[in-house]
């Protein structure tokens, strides 16, 4: 009698090798809510839904729709979504397949409305930008504002500068 090749599964455990592409899992500490996985997923297993009024972004992962292609893992900037080696996905209720990550959207410090990127996205951008190339004070003024407020403050500053220049010229000419 040669070696036995069967296993009393599921009474005995069976582990998949480490290269196996199993169910995806999003690490909530690392996810910044950029939605790159949503753009890459061929089967719409990851969804990104914004609630602008209350300032919450939901990243919804439905493992039942996932085809385990691994494209989300390739495009994630922080390495939050990874494919595990779990292959047992049967469950009595479909709700067990759904994972929701909630992130806070950035609240504008000038007008109080919510913008369309999350706080973590802004922190991530600050992390990866090289310090030497920035004017830190100028960045700090703009980065916590929403898009409309940024436009308005930039415009008003430019108008102010323009007036100052014109006024300065006016004063100079009256001096002379």
């Amino acid at each position: 009698m040669s070696k036995i090749v069967t296993l009393e599964y599921p009474l005995k455990e069976l582990k998949a090798p480490e290269e196996y592409r199993g169910l995806p899992y999003i690490d909530p500490h690392k996810c910044i809510g950029c939605g790159a996985c949503r753009n890459a997923c061929p089967s719409d297993a990851v969804m990104k839904i914004d609630d602008i009024k209350n300032g919450i972004r939901k990243i919804i992962l439905d493992v039942g729709r996932c085809i385990r292609c691994g494209r989300c893992e390739e495009v994630c900037p922080t390495g939050a979504i990874k494919l595990t080696t779990i292959f047992e996905a049967a469950s009595k209720s479909r709700e067990n397949h759904i994972e929701i990550i909630e992130l806070k959207l950035l609240r504008c410090s000038r007008c109080g409305r919510y913008s369309e990127f999350t706080e973590r996205q802004v922190m991530f951008a600050l992390d990866i930008l090289p310090r030497e190339a920035l004017e830190v004070e100028a960045l700090d003024k703009r980065i916590w504002l929403c898009r409309d407020c940024r436009r308005e403050t930039a415009l008003s500053e430019a108008v102010d500068k323009e007036w100052k220049w014109y006024y300065g010229k006016l004063v100079k000419s009256t001096w002379e």
Binding site: V5, E19, R21, I67, R68, G70
Partner: peptide, 22 residues
């Protein structure tokens, strides 16, 4: 099918899945 298992394990280690190599 026992001999075939070798190929399936090989495919799993090369590509991440026994069939559907992606």
């Amino acid at each position: 099918w026992r001999i075939r298992e070798r190929i399936m394990w090989l495919a799993e280690r090369l590509t991440g899945n026994r069939k559907t190599y992606g």
